[in-house]
Amino acid sequence: MAKNNETKSKAENKEDEAKYPNIPGQPPDESTATLLRELVAHLRQKRSELREEWANRIQEAELLTAMTKEEILAEATSVYDNYVEALETGTYEALQSYARNLSERIIPRGVETHEVIGIVLLLRDVLARSLFAKYRDNFSKLNRILDAYEPAANRIANTVSVGFVQERERVIREQQEAIRELSTPVLQVRERLLILPIIGIIDSKRAQQLTEQLLQGIRKNRAKVVVIDITGVAAMDEKVANHIVQTVDAARLLGAGVIVTGLSTEIAQTLVTIGVDLTKIITVGDLQGGIEEAERKLGYQVQQVDPTKS
């Protein structure tokens, strides 16, 4: 087959060069648009055959293993149609939004970036093979068709892959955000009393977020007293300590008193050494003591219950 094509190509190329000596391979009466139209007509005509072949190749290559054959075929049909439409119109918005929509659906099912790039490249290959088959007897024409097809196909592959990666990044960002929020839960233990247990490492970004969440929480729950428990805080530097002092002050401006509990000896020493002024902050040894103190402030009666008797 290769030999056959080669001999043909030589003959045809000579003919072309004779006909269009100035612009080889670019006959003026056969623009890229015309070629793409012809290409699109071919792809429409072969629609069911090609997309089925594509779906089969996807399965053979063990891509999209998280999806059933029916699902793959259904998506393949949509991608195919969007693909042909992008070739026809030269606009990529519809394809782009479809790619994003598709990504949104398949990302939670664990589809990876290499799979998405893989299937787009497979489609490109399936279509290119079909073009070879159609124009095998007219190699010069095949060259021109491919010249028109390649840039468009590359752009499509690019659009779909980038769409997927962007969607994935968005999901990751959302998850990071969710983790950050989870890591600083504002809990309401009883009416007008909030607890903010801080666990792990606090950086400036997290400290900022923590303060914003607490202030919103105070307003939402109409809290009068807040217990910030820092038992789980591994280390604290001056910046973070000052942030906690600021949080206490800001909470006070909203009318809520703050009690800090769980200040370890090490952290307390560090804070004194670096000169953070904690004198205006009420501190209580542990969370239990802090809640009791908070309840006293709220006017609740606190009773000692002997656990052995209950």
Binding site: R100, N101, R170
Partner: peptide
């Protein structure tokens, strides 16, 4: 969601 990237 569709316009996320445009709007940003």
């Amino acid at each position: 969601m569709k316009n996320k990237f445009e709007s940003k």
